[in-house]
Nucleic acid binder design. Structure first.
Length: 826
DNA sequence: ACATTGATGATTTTT
DNA sequence: TCATCAATGT
């Protein structure tokens, strides 16, 4: 077998490649990582240490020195973005195409595996993938059908339960039932599984679990892939969950007589200090398990940081040193100390935002920072609102990360549901989504009857329509007939034509044309056509769909060059057996057994499910970047603001409940700090509006863990109003902000004005001062929403104080004075 | 069918 | 506080 020969040749290959331009400019640590000998290894890659470069150079080096063929390489990431970047860098580095390699996300690779072996995995040929939204609606549908008490078991909770089980590798039968609640949940889990199987759909967790089981249970298949993937590289290893680790293990080797035996090389790259996804099942412990179970001999630390000045790194290092059970790592830089890390204490969240705005103006105007290179990070999304307002009022363009992604938008989901119904009429989730959208007189009652009918006859909704009588039945049958006609009509059409036809004939376009906010949606529907078009061209659909032009230089073995039709016979000896078509994006959608390919539409639907699309607001403009700390992982900026560094927020109070919660919060802070290249600002506020209540927060304990000599407190002396100028720049030109969310917010000025009272009397935590509101019966007051009114009565004191106010048109209301903003009018 | 109201809950999130 | 969503009313 080729790997053996090639591995024997490693020493020469390695030494001669030493002078290769590939390896130029690598530091010693990086070079060692890139040229690691065969065998499992762990690379502890600190923030900004050139991790992706090492990963890609390693692959290029393996190929260039002849130690590996493209077909023997598997590289797995968590996000599509990371996978794309890796692919892009590799194709820039390598003289030939990168098709033979398996590079992708865990879910993307699982999808490939399941497509190639759908029969062995007991899935229909064109199985659909449910995203989180679809999964939730599938569960809701199920709950309704089986009369699950949604007080006791909310669909969301059930979804988390099911996803959690799958992440742990557990089928319903594997869950240990200790209480009646769990028993019920497991029951629903079981029913959900049956429903998915019946409808031919899989959720994200199922992609992982099903392909894990496929590998585990099919020894021929497993060994085939084990032989094939001699070089596996795992990015962000600290984020892997239990199932993903087990999945890797299946691919890497077998347990023989209680010992794990593997002949491949698994390189795990990660940073335990940047593990921030425990809440979604990530197990940092996988790193220690990996070292033990894979008998890792080589561990390399990448500690040279190429990003930040040393004051910033000193803060990061000092902070993270307060965590226990670290694998141990300390970042260093050749860049000088740079500016001190600035710390600001604001009297309120509004003042904090206003300070940020002033500081950003300064950075851009005087210090030559680009707005794009300035980021404002926060612990929770709720914090963005005030910052957005402040930026908007100051006419500073900004961009918020983390809204709805393209393929998650309602209109896109609707169009996709129609497309899915074309492919699979039994996809009840899609059926439900569009049976009455746009409205065609099929009401809730009708749908209920249909669901009952379908359940009792054990068929899909589509097939049950004939059994419904009356006008309701006629309408349903009309819908199904329409879909049948469309299915017929789109036969043999190009993807573009199919989508255009569907968008028009479904009535979606028409529907949105008559809606006031519909213009954007129609634009998105057109964008969907464009996306499909570029998908087709990029992926090479439409021409040469089966015969892959394999580059001669790729040195692929018989395995990768085999004609698709030779396929896999599970009983045939697999050694030297050509069986895998799965090369590159296109061939991955070719089935190993039958050589069937997915149609362009089917492939596009897979793409849409697996890649939710852009996560950011419109790009282009030079805008300040706003995002959560989580979203900032992997990014870097010249200047970084971290707001709300307060007890209860950062570290977050909810995180303190779970074991290890504080340490994860600290890692989160570590991630945030290490985003900054030149300038770092940390701020906290004495008061903050949260859930409609003013909260008094003390500054975060994390400040106490930073080295004094790297810091500079820049809070001005608080004398009365201090330096705060409420609502500076108010009335400035609207339309400059990228968001535009505040374009119609005429109430803003009034709100900012009323909060300025907070500054007049700085808050004293917990102390209940006498009624500062000054509201008395008989006074005339003004309310932002209800307008002017007369106070009829006041009762209670402090935070509990309430006033009964009569607002002419809006009636009489009791208002909590700590919440409602009442201003006294003469 | 559609608008309006009231309850609810509100870290972090990719696939 | 404020968005979302199911339930209710016209």
């Amino acid at each position: 077998m080729f790997p053996i020969d090639l591995l024997d040749a490693t020493p020469e290959g390695a030494s001669s490649a030493h002078h290769s331009p590939l390896l130029a400019n690598l530091n010693d640590e990086q070079l060692a990582a890139v040229t690691l000998p065969a065998g499992h290894a762990l690379i502890l890659a600190g923030a900004g240490s050139g991790k992706t470069r090492v990963l890609t150079t390693r692959i290029a080096w393996l190929l260039q020195t002849g130690q590996a063929t493209p077909g023997s390489i598997l590289a797995v990431t968590f996000t599509n973005k990371a996978a794309k970047e890796m692919l892009a860098r590799l194709s820039a580095m390598l003289p030939y195409n990168v098709r033979g390699m398996w590079i992708g996300t865990f879910h993307g690779l699982c999808n490939r595996l399941l497509r190639a072996h759908y029969q062995a995995a007991k899935l229909p040929q064109a199985f659909q993938i449910l995203d989180t939204q679809d999964q939730l609606s599938a569960i809701k549908r199920l709950c309704k059908q089986f009369n699950v008490d949604d007080e006791r078991f909310s669909p969301k909770q059930l979804m988390y339960f099911i996803a959690g089980c799958k992440e742990e590798g557990m089928r319903p039968g594997d869950v240990v039932v200790s209480d009646p609640d769990t028993r019920k949940k497991v029951e629903i889990y079981q029913l959900y599984e049956e429903q998915c199987q019946r409808e031919g759909v899989v959720d994200f967790g199922e992609l992982m679990l099903r392909s894990f089981e496929l590998l585990r249970d099919d020894v021929h298949l497993r060994q085939h892939y084990q032989r094939r993937f001699q070089h596996m590289l795992v990015d962000e290893f600290q984020d892997t969950n239990k199932l993903q680790y087990q999945w890797l293990k299946q691919l890497a080797g077998d347990v023989v007589e209680g010992r794990f035996v593997s002949s491949s090389s698994v390189i795990a790259v990660g940073d335990d200090d940047q593990s921030i996804y425990a809440f979604r099942g990530a197990r940092v412990g996988n790193m220690a398990d990996f070292i033990r179970e894979f008998d890792v001999r080589n561990q390399i630390k990448l500690e040279q940081n190429y990003r930040s000045h040393s004051n910033i790194l000193d803060c990061a290092n000092a902070l993270i040193s307060h965590n226990s059970n670290r694998l141990g790592k300390s970042l260093r830089t050749d860049q000088g100390p740079g500016e001190p890390v600035r710390i600001y204490e604001a009297p309120s969240d509004l003042a904090e935002a206003s300070w940020m705005v002033d500081e950003i103006k300064q950075l851009v105007k005087s210090d030559g920072f680009k707005r794009q290179e300035i980021a404002v990070l926060y612990r929770s999304n709720a914090q963005s609102r005030v910052i957005e307002s402040a930026l908007f009022n100051a006419s500073i363009p900004y961009r918020v990360y983390g809204g709805l992604r393209f393929f998650e938008r309602a209109e896109i989901k609707h169009a996709l549901a129609y497309l899915r119904l074309l492919e699979n009429p039994h996809d009840d989730t899609s059926f439900m989504r569009v049976v009455n959208f746009p409205p065609r007189g099929i009401g809730a009652r009708t749908v209920e009857v249909l669901q009952d009918t379908a359940r009792s006859s054990g068929t899909s909704l589509n097939d049950a329509v004939t059994a419904v009588g009356g006008t309701a039945g006629t309408k349903l049958q009309g819908f199904v007939a329409k879909m049948d006609v469309l299915r017929e009509r789109t036969q043999g059409k190009t993807l573009r034509e199919i989508i255009e036809t569907i968008e028009e004939e479904s009535g979606l376009i028409e529907h949105y044309r008559s809606e006031k906010e519909g213009a954007d949606r129609i634009e998105n529907l057109q964008e969907l056509v464009t996306a499909a078009e570029s998908f087709v061209t990029q992926e090479g659909f439409g021409r040469d769909a089966v015969a892959l032009p394999l580059d001669e230089h790729s040195g692929t073995s018989a395995i990768t060059q085999s004609p698709v039709s030779q396929g896999l016979d599970p009983r045939a000896p697999l050694l030297n057996e050509p069986l895998k078509p799965a090369e590159g994006t296109l061939a991955s959608l070719v089935n190993a057994d039958t050589g069937e390919t997915l149609s362009p539409l089917q492939a596009f639907l897979v793409h849409a499910a697996l890649e939710a699309g852009d996560n950011q607001a419109q790009a282009g403009q030079d805008a300040v970047q706003l995002m959560t700390v989580h979203a900032s992982k992997g990014l870097e900026f010249d200047a970084v603001f971290i707001g709300g560094v307060e007890e209860g927020l950062f570290p977050h109070e909810n995180a303190m409940m779970d074991r290890g919660g504080l340490e994860e919060e600290r890692r989160l802070a570590y991630v945030a700090i290490t985003r900054a290249r030149k300038r770092l600002y940390l701020s906290h506020s004495q008061t903050r509006m949260l859930h409609g209540q003013t909260r008094y927060n003390v500054k975060s304990r994390f400040f106490d863990e930073l080295p004094e000599e790297a810091l500079k407190w820049i809070t001005p002396r608080q004398a009365g109003f201090g330096t705060f100028t409420p609502n500076s720049g108010a009335g400035g030109a609207y339309g400059a902000g990228a968001g535009g969310r505040f374009g119609s917010n005429s109430g803003w000025g009034g709100r900012a004005g009323s909060t300025s009272e907070i500054f007049a009397s700085p808050p004293v935590p917990k102390q209940k001062a006498e009624p500062s509101h000054g509201i008395k019966a008989g006074l005339n007051v003004f309310h932002n929403k209800f307008g002017e009114g007369k106070v009829l009565a006041v009762e209670g004191a402090g935070d509990d104080a309430r006033a009964q106010v009569s607002f002419g048109r809006h009636g009489t209301k009791w208002l909590a004075l700590s919440i409602a903003k009442l201003t006294i009018v003469s």
